[in-house]
Design a protein around this nucleic acid. Sequence first.
RNA 1: GCGCCCAUAGCUCAAUUGGAUAGAGUGCCGGCCUACGAAGCCGUAGAUUCCCUGUUCGAACCAGGGUGGGCGCACCA
Length: 548
Amino acid sequence: MSKIEKNIIDAIQKSVRGVFPDCPEEILASVYLEIPKEKRFGDFSTNVAMRLAREMKKPPMDIAASVAGKAKEALASDDAVSDIKIEKPGFINFYLSNKAVIEALSKILREGSRFGRSSLEKGKKVQIEFVSANPTGPLTVAHGRQAAVGDSLARILEFCGHRVTREYYINDEGVQMDILGRSVRARYLEAMGEKSEFPENGYKGSYIHDIAQAVKGEAKQKGPLTDEFFAEYASKRIMRMIKQDLKDFGVAFDVWYSQKKLSGSGKIKKALSVLKAGGFLYEKAGATWFRSTEFGDDKDRVVIKKDGVFTYLAPDIAYHKEKFEKGYERVINIWGPDHHGYVCRLRAACQAFGFAKDALSILIAQLVTLYRDKKPIKMSTREGEFITLRQVIDEVGRDAGRFFFMMRRTDSHLDFDLELAKARTMDNPVYYIQYAHARISSIISFSGNAAPALKGLHVLDKPEEVNIIKTLMQYPKIVQGSAHNLEPYLLLAYLQDLARLFHSYYDSYRVVTDDSAVTKARIALIKAIKTVLSSGLTLLGVSAPEKM
RNA sequence: GCGCCCAUAGCUCAAUUGGAUAGAGUGCCGGCCUACGAAGCCGUAGAUUCCCUGUUCGAACCAGGGUGGGCGCACCA
């Protein structure tokens, strides 16, 4: 919250207390400002009057009038606020003075790329786990979306002053690894001209052939060619490929966590024994169950099967217990839609351990449907028919790829039009924003790299100019909102708006003019726009080019 | 059958989490390059917010009931 907003809220609270000494504390404490959709309603608005109406048994407009009157007195000495008005149902609207706007612009210019960053004092230790694809095949577009969202959220949270660890959980043991080993072995035998039977539920993708060929190519094979050997060989090779794909997508992880190591450490048993001690486990029909219904789950869940083997849930319980024990104050998981039903039971486990309920956030990155020629592309992972993240990166590039994956709310379905993403035309929103950035660079160099004015900014008095600066002023709030809601698309939409304002302004006014005072001030203005565009694009992992 | 999610302009989505006249993009139609990048700008048209009922100063948003769609309901991972 900016200093201006703080002063306004203080003034409102003081005024309300002055008019209604017996005003309930909750209403006072929850006073907040919103930014009106329409300019004529001012720059900040409060709805206290309406909320007080019932409590005080008075018409909202009357309350607004008296509170606004007091607030005017309270803010009389504050030259940031030029006017206070009341409006229809009972809104109290505050108008920023030109002085405040100009000061805000010079602040942005002074802070440069630091503008919008939050103070480090309230930073939390955050872990964000995402992608975590099984090492049984290449990353798909679904993983691409998780990668884009996860990495951008990490960047945004860091920008807001948190200490963020990016983690990838490698599911390198269990049934799917056996199948992987058997699949590769079968392809290998085929390649050697020997008879083989491909497993019924095996991985059918062409990459399995490639791996088999690679084994064949490496003459110096050591050890017996068992399923285990093939599984190990293949998963290592696939992990290398996954890491390369992520790197090319601009995503870097701090921790690669192996489930195999977790299993070997005995932590799973330990975690279960803690649950048992808490009375959350019981035996039934030869299996061990976790009493997840106690925390709102539909039914209890098996953690140890009749045959003594852990279910998938067991290591995950231990894994999450460890996350919190490592001191993370906030744990964020990004999962695919197929894990949707799994959220409840994992939350239950975390609660059973006594971890704070809201410390764990699980985001479901919904399905991505790729479109080509306006038609959806059908995909089947099992049949090995799918478009990989690699193909998307190669086809549309990293910038468009990341951008498109974040265009919608994370938990809503996403249509990804491949042709549009790679189109270098005006309907492509990525280029629209990048173009604004490049265009500004071009103007600045056209001006002979004129130094931006730090004084004399008051000549920026056109409504469009004032509007742009006010939009720039919102940037810190937008980033914080994006972090708070864990939604990169909020930032993305904001950048689109800002780019639109710039393009429109560019068309109506010349930046470089004969009047050097005006030129300098306008250069300052577009430089500030450039700063924010570049900052925002960086948070999204999209480049901000000087030229295109 | 039980549980979760969704329904807003022709299409894809917003709407500051209960706020003011429901907004963008795209598509359609029309206009703007002999001054800073036309990858751009401006304009017209397009909505019973799926349907009832309720809650209150105020509902696209909350509650109840319908209708239509998606997903989950494993001692698989």
